[in-house]
Write a protein that binds this DNA or RNA. Sequence first.
RNA 1: GGCCCCUUCGUCUAAUGGUUAGGACACCGCUCUUUCAAGGCGGCGAUACGGGUUCGAGUCCCGUAGGGGUCACCA
Length: 496
Amino acid sequence: MSVRVRFAPSPTGYLHIGGLRTALYNFLFARHHGGTFVLRIEDTDKTRYVEGSVENIIEMLHWCRLDYDEGPGKGGPYGPYVQSERTEIYRQYARELLDKGAAYIAFDTPEELERMRQRQQQAGIVPKYDRTTMRNQFTLGEEETQRLLAEGVPYVIRLKVPLTGVIKFSDIVRGEISVPARDVDDQILLKSDGFPTYHLANVVDDHLMHITHVIRGEEWLPSMPKHVLLYEAFGWEKPQFAHLPLLLNPDRSKLSKRHGHVAVEDFKKEGYFPEALINFVALLGWNPTGEREIYSLQELIELFDLRKVNKAGAIFDIQKLRWINAHYLRHKDPKELARQLQQYVQERNLGDFSLEYLEKVVILLRERVDLLPEILTFGDYLFHPPTHFEQEYFARVWSEDIEALIPALLTLLRQIEPWEHTVIWEQLKGFAKQQGIKIGKVMNALRLMLTGKSVGAGMTETMEVLGKEETLRRIEQFVTQHLPALRQQMAENASE
RNA sequence: GGCCCCUUCGUCUAAUGGUUAGGACACCGCUCUUUCAAGGCGGCGAUACGGGUUCGAGUCCCGUAGGGGUCACCA
C-alpha cells in the first residue's frame, strides 16, 4: 500500500515554525516513499477561525516548496479537504458510535460541568466526567433521553471509555506506550453546535482519506488513547503514528511568540531564504549523519527516515538559523540575489539601481551579513552618499598629514585608468610609498570619506563599485562640507 | 496534582554493548589582511544522579532528580 500522509493545521492564525516542521516531515516522508501528501484544514471550531489563515498556510507552504498533492484548491479523490464542509459525515459516524454503544448522549450545560469539576477538585480527585451522576443517557434513562431530544434540548455525544483495563499503542518515534483506561476522560465527540471535536473529525478523516501514517506534534500524545478507542469502536485499522518532539523556546517551554517571532511569514519578511529555513528546521529533531549541516530539499527527501527522529524537544536557536542563511547567501547565484535585493530596494524607496549594479553590491557585501536585506543597512553608503560619519573613527584615522595629502590623492585618483580595484590598489600603494606614509592610513582615510564607517568590504573593491566619478565627488564633498562639521562636533564634545 | 513523554558540550546533534565520546552553531585564540567579515588552523566544552546486568554501558534494566506536554462543547 502506498504511503499517504497529511498535514492538518487549524486556521487559527499564521503558519508557525512548529507547524512548518510538522508539514516538512510529512512532506519528506511522503516524497521519500513516493507517496501522497495531503493538506487538510481542521476548522471545526468556528469561534477560533482567523480570516486569511488558510491562505497564509497555503502561501507559506508554497514559498517553502512543500507543495501538496491533495487539498483545498487542488481537490483529490477524498475531498472535501476542509472539515467544516464535512460536518454531515461526522454526525453520521457519531450516530454509528451511538448505535454501537461506544458513545452516549449527555445534556449537561457548561455550568453544570464547571460545578462538577469544582466539586472534584475540592474532593482532591482528578477532574473527569462522571457518567454515573451527570445528566446523560445512563442516568436519565432511554425514555427521558428521547423526550429531551424531541424537545430540542442541546446535547453532546461523548465517547464511552472503559472503566478498567489498559490502552496500548505503538509509536514509530517513541515505541510502546500504555495508559490505564481509568485515566482517560469521556471525550466529547460531537459538540452541541453539531460540529465534531478534533478527536472525532481527525480519526474519521484519517480513515476516509486512507492516511497510512499520522505524523504530528507530541502535544497529541496524551489524546492517543481516545483515538485508539475510536478506531477500535469503528472496527478500523489504525494508521501508524509518529509523534514528533516539540520545538522549544530557549527556556525549554513549547515554542511560542513570547521569545521572538514564530510565524513563517515573519521569517520571510525578515529576508530569510526558504531553503535555509527548511534546512534548519529539518535538522531540529532529526539528523541523517551528524557530520553535515547543509542539505537541499532534494537531499533531505532522499535521506529522510522517520525512525531516526529524536524523542527530546529541540530549542529553536536563531543563531544557527542565521548561520545557515548566511551560508546560502554566500553560495546562491548573485544574479538571482540581485533581483531579490532590487525588491527590497524598491520596497524601501531607496532609489533606482540597475541589476548590474546590485549584483556588484551583492558580491561585495554578502560575506559580511547573514540576511540579504541587511546589505541595505550594512552597506547604506552604496545607495546614497554618507551623511553620518563615525566620530570615533574620524578621531582615530584623520590627521593633519592625511589632510595635506588630499589634493595629491585626488589628482592621482583622477588619472587612474581603468577604474578597477587591482589598478587602484597598485596606484595607492605606490602613492603611499612615494609619500612615505603607511598604506593603512590612506585606506582608512578613504574609508572614512567614502563610507563614513569603520567597517565594510575591501576599500578598493568598494571604490570600483562606487565608480570614479562618485568616489571623487565624495572626497571633495567630505573636505568641503563634512570635515568642518565634524571638527565642530569634536570641539563641542571636548568642551563638555 | 493525575497521566504520559523526555534527559550526550550553553545550543542542534553523531556514536551494530568495545571510539582518546565525533561534527556544527556560539564563544575564545592564531592565521590572512587596507577595516570588518568570510576562509584556514587551533582551543574551551557533554553522556543528570544512584544502583544493577555484562569481561566491557552514553547505549540494556530499576530507582531518583530535573525538564516538558496534557488534563475544555480548542485544535
